[in-house]
Amino acid sequence: MCTYTTVKDAVDGSAKGPGGTWFHVSDVTVYFDHPVHAMAEHTLNIDFADPSKGPAARVALELTAESAQRLIAAVQAALAAVPDDMRV
């Protein structure tokens, strides 16, 4: 069963896309659903995109729930190690 829960937000960063080119990303979409490529029943799917550049300006991740939780913990640990004055 799918939850159809989708979370969208604005981000500011860069991603390496098709052909190895870097592009600005302004949008993120996160949802738990059936994957397109990953070998799992369901995955946490994260899409980083710049809609103004069309559908090719997108990087997609499909992570198992366990992998997604490890990613969250790794991001939190990395950010916790950064001095406050560097977070701007």
Rank of each mutant, 00 (worst) to 15 (best):
H37K: 15
T43S: 15
A56T: 13
S26N: 08
D47E: 15
A60F: 06
G17F: 03
D47M: 06
A77L: 06
S26C: 01
P18C: 08
V75D: 08
A38Y: 01
H42T: 10
I72W: 04
T5G: 11
T6E: 14
N45T: 05
D33C: 11
V25Q: 00
V25W: 00
D33L: 07
F32G: 01
D9Q: 09
G20F: 05
A49T: 05
T6I: 12
F23I: 02
A65G: 08
N45R: 14
I72F: 08
H34V: 11
P83K: 09
V75A: 14
A78D: 12
D85I: 03
Y31K: 11
A68P: 02
D84T: 12
A10E: 09
R87D: 05
K53I: 01
H24Y: 08
W22E: 14
A57I: 00
P55A: 08
L61N: 02
V88H: 12
N45L: 02
V11C: 04
L44Y: 01
V36Q: 14
A15P: 00
T6S: 11
P18V: 10
Y31S: 07
G19V: 10
M1F: 06
K53Y: 05
L79Q: 14
G54W: 09
Q69K: 12
P35E: 08
V7N: 07
H37L: 13
L44H: 02
D27W: 01
A56S: 15
M39G: 15
I72N: 04
A15Y: 00
G54A: 11
Q69W: 05
V36E: 15
H34L: 07
R70Y: 07
M39T: 10
W22K: 12
N45A: 04
V7P: 01
T29F: 02
P35I: 06
A56D: 14
A40N: 11
T21D: 10
I72Q: 12
S26I: 00
L61W: 07
H37R: 15
S52V: 05
P51I: 05
A80S: 13
D50F: 00
S52R: 15
P83Q: 05
A38N: 08
A65C: 09
A65Q: 12
D85G: 03
D9W: 02
L63H: 03
A74G: 13
M86E: 13
F48Q: 01
G17S: 06
K53L: 15
K16S: 07
C2E: 13
R70E: 15
L63K: 03
H42A: 12
D84A: 14
A57W: 00
D27R: 12
F32C: 09
A15F: 00
T64K: 02
